[in-house]
Design a protein around this nucleic acid. Structure first.
Lengths: 352, 352
DNA sequence: GTTTAGCACTCATACCCGTCGAGTGCTAAA
DNA sequence: TTTAGCACTCGACGGGTATGAGTGCTAAAC
């Protein structure tokens, strides 16, 4: 089915007006606003056609029309124009990126917070790891008699650490020796190969009788297990209430509860191969709780396993061009920043 | 003013019934429930007295009474009994603590999440640092030709790290040398003493011309600045909607927005010296947004600057004894765990 | 054939009003 | 001091009516 030009213009006008006002739009308003040189009656006829095509709908006989999910879909696919971000927008985003993305193991939460702040929707962030993570490096740092720090570099380029107190004496030399042992025996192997046998063997090899090896191995296994399950983050919940469709407390509660649950977040849409942002409208969402919300996602990719997804959730009545453009810009910025663009302020280093 | 015994019993009954049902409670219900051997008329008289004392209130002439903030205060101070946690509760909390508190620099978020899950209220967590943080130790870990990791131990026992890419070659020996330089020049000094002069001097001393020193010093300053401003975390927002007093979207929105803002969190109540949990009821809150909500906070303390606050926010109609007991138990558990109770599973290590 | 004006129709919203019931305050008796 | 009785108040609920926006349809105009 191919829509006539005039139908397209009307559909587009309905979507944009509705996005703006949150009120059903009538034929008269269309004529006034979008400069068609026909009467409202003509527009009414066209709108009736659009309705029978399933692109608009009526809550009741009278009172204006509202786009259906399918209507939004056509709008997103065919009618909307690329939103050009204003210089002010790009400036704000650039500044926020520079100032807020700090530690690597906080990328997720920083990215989420940023996305939410800059789009005014609740945002979620997911870490994507294409490969099974392994440990690439161990370090044991001596702090005092009873205390040391385990620092572990994972293959996805994040660094994890743990401060350990032991009731026994910890000599710096022991730590040096142990870290060599660990770097020899535990790097590069996935979690399921860290068997009790391997640990026992390492314990024998290092002559450790005080449980050091067991503690460190335990930490390593724990890390790999949590790194395997994708990490998630959600923030900006309060933005939900800025939209009249969430004045229904139960609806808001449902969506919020869904977003607060890690398992829910993992089931949210992910962008497809093309790399652009992806828009999922209302019932296109798999989750029952989001059947009348929309999700926009984009992907950041700084190579070597440092990849992730940022997305926002809002009502189906959403300014898709604007949100998609901002999200994409943020994702690109993150990619650049994480790929090393941040490491030396003032020196441009934009490889890979 | 000292209340008669009967008045106390009635006030207590009103509070507890109202907490349970969320409906104004009438004189008849009191007689039925709390086994007083007087008629409802007598109770009515007593309630009228309590009202003129400002402990109960009426929305309108008819329909039952509701405790005022002052009524709750009296209840909390004088009438409520210590809530004994069931074995099931303590088991759940213990298990959750063991399983969820992992990395030291995630204590805040883990503690918050836990608190929210176990109390069914939105929870907040704040890190408390009694002293100005300084860096106690630097390590530079070589990763590959262009990449290394900065690991920094702060005086508050948290570990921060950053992965750095540089466009120039990074030799392992250089890193070893530099880390010695940094450990000599930059440990133990607060942020405001990290002047450009000091950095320039260090740069000269180490013979560095490629900007290493500047990058690392920049990171150090950034760290100290963020560590100075207290860290905050909020989670469990969706629990707010489980309480009928937040069916008013605007009210919920106000509270949520307040809690989502770091500056808001920092102004929330903090426990006082005694160490027990502290309860702040309705208008006792400084923040306008929380004038009809209540806050319960407790403090965890694992010595040596590893201290923090966990708290929950809910309607004034809150089961104070239960919430306070749980919060206190969680806080104690955290203290124990962070003080080293976790380091060697199976070995009991409950010093400091 | 397409467009337009006119008109009857529909439905959400707001408002008013009477009823109902829970719970009170007061008074007079126990 | 306590209790029973009674009038009173006020929110919740339901139905009836007015209002107004915006439609669908039809017949005339282009």
């Amino acid at each position: 089915m191919e829509l006539s030009d005039r139908k397209k213009r009307i559909l587009r006008a309905v979507v944009e007006k509705y996005v703006q006002t949150a009120e059903p739009v009538g034929s008269k308003a269309i004529v006034n606003d979008c400069g068609l040189s026909v009467s409202s009656a003509t527009v009414r006829n066209e709108m009736a056609d659009l309705e029978s095509l399933g692109l608009l709908e009526h809550t009741h006989t009278s009172s204006g029309r509202v786009p259906t999910a399918q209507g939004y879909r056509i709008y997103v696919n065919e009618l909307m124009e690329e939103h050009r971000l204003s210089e002010h927008d790009t400036d704000t985003i650039n500044r926020a990126l520079r100032n807020n993305v700090q530690q690597l193991d906080k990328v997720l939460s920083d990215a989420g917070r940023l996305t939410s702040d800059l789009t005014n929707y609740p945002a979620y962030a997911l870490a994507v790891s294409s490969q099974q993570p392994v440990i690439t490096r161990f370090d044991l740092i001596h702090v005092d008699q009873h205390t040391f720090i385990i620092v572990v570099l994972l293959s996805n380029n994040t660094v994890k650490n743990k401060l350990v107190h032991l009731p026994i004496n910890v000599a710096p030399e022991t730590l040096t020796k142990l870290s060599a042992v660990f770097n020899a025996s535990f790097t590069g192997i996935p979690e399921e190969e860290m068997t009790p046998q391997l640990i026992a063997a390492t314990e024998r090899a290092s002559g450790d009788t005080s449980g050091f090896v067991a503690v460190i191995a335990g930490f390593a296994i724990e890390l790999l297990m949590t790194a395997k399950s994708r990490e998630t983050f959600m923030t900006g919940a309060s933005h939900l209430f800025e939209h009249p469709e969430f004045r229904d407390v139960d609806k808001a509660h449902r969506v919020l509860t869904y977003l607060s649950d890690e398992n829910g977040l993992l089931k949210l849409p992910t962008p497809d191969k093309t790399g652009g942002s992806k828009i999922t409208i209302g019932p296109e969402n798999l989750a029952e709780e989001l059947k009348d919300s929309s999700v926009v996602v984009a992907k950041y990719d700084a190579g070597s396993n440092l990849q992730g997804i940022i997305g926002v959730v809002g009502p189906t009545r959403m300014d898709y061009p604007k949100v998609a453009a901002r999200l994409q810009y943020i994702a690109n910025g993150l990619s650049w920043l994480l790929a090393g663009g941040f490491s030396l302020p003032g020196i441009d280093d934009s490889d890979s």
